[in-house]
């Protein structure tokens, strides 16, 4: 093997490895490093879930389950697992970061071809979604890493005054 070829292989390995790492790291480390009024954030400041050793989830993950099941389940299926005509979000969120998820939810997404017509609506004007979008994201993030299982979380942290206040002002 020539030196040149060896360098190429090493370079490729590095690139591939980096690409792989980048993909694996897309949503970043979900570990909660800070919290404010029951809402947890990761090291990048993005919303994340917190699951206690007893299985108790943070309040946002819980409310995320509730609001997901009302607004997203019709297409994306129970527990984010997908349906016959919309992708599994448990899978999708492994490769999307917080800002990408927000952009898709607010602006919608189209994948229309001869063989299939997948269309997600723009939900940016929908208060029932947008007032709870961080909670929905946190819940699905937990589903995508496997930290949150199927079905309604059995136990959750209490609702905070800050949440109620934010909900009231957002919903109008």
């Amino acid at each position: 093997m020539t030196k040149c070829a060896r360098i190429f292989i090493v370079a490729c390995m590095l690139t591939c490895l980096t690409a792989g790492l980048v993909r694996a790291e897309k949503p970043g480390d979900p570990a909660a490093v800070s919290s404010e009024d029951g809402k947890y954030a990761d090291k990048d400041g993005n919303p994340t879930y917190k699951v206690g050793s007893d299985g108790k989830v943070d309040f946002y993950s819980y409310i995320g389950f509730v609001r997901y099941s009302a607004n997203c389940l019709q297409c994306h299926g129970p527990d984010g697992l997908g349906s016959t005509y919309a992708p599994s979000l448990v899978d999708s969120l492994k490769n999307l970061d917080y800002s990408e998820v927000m952009a898709i939810v607010a602006g919608g997404k189209k994948d229309v071809s001869e063989s299939q017509q997948l269309v997600m609506p723009a939900l940016g004007e929908n208060k029932n979604v947008m007032c709870f979008i961080d909670a929905i994201y946190v819940y699905l993030r937990g589903r995508s890493t496997g930290a949150i299982g199927r079905g309604r979380p059995a136990e959750h942290e209490p609702k905070t005054d800050a949440f109620t206040k934010a909900e009231d002002s957002c919903m109008g």
């Binding site: 929908n126 029932n128 079905g151």
Partner: peptide, 23 residues
């Protein structure tokens, strides 16, 4: 099923569901 209703707001052309359910 389990059925949990909650408050929703109406926007024309947007889903107006207002409950979560598990089957």
């Amino acid at each position: 099923m389990d059925y949990e209703p909650f408050r929703v707001s109406y926007t024309a052309g947007q889903p107006y569901v207002g409950a979560t359910l598990s089957m």
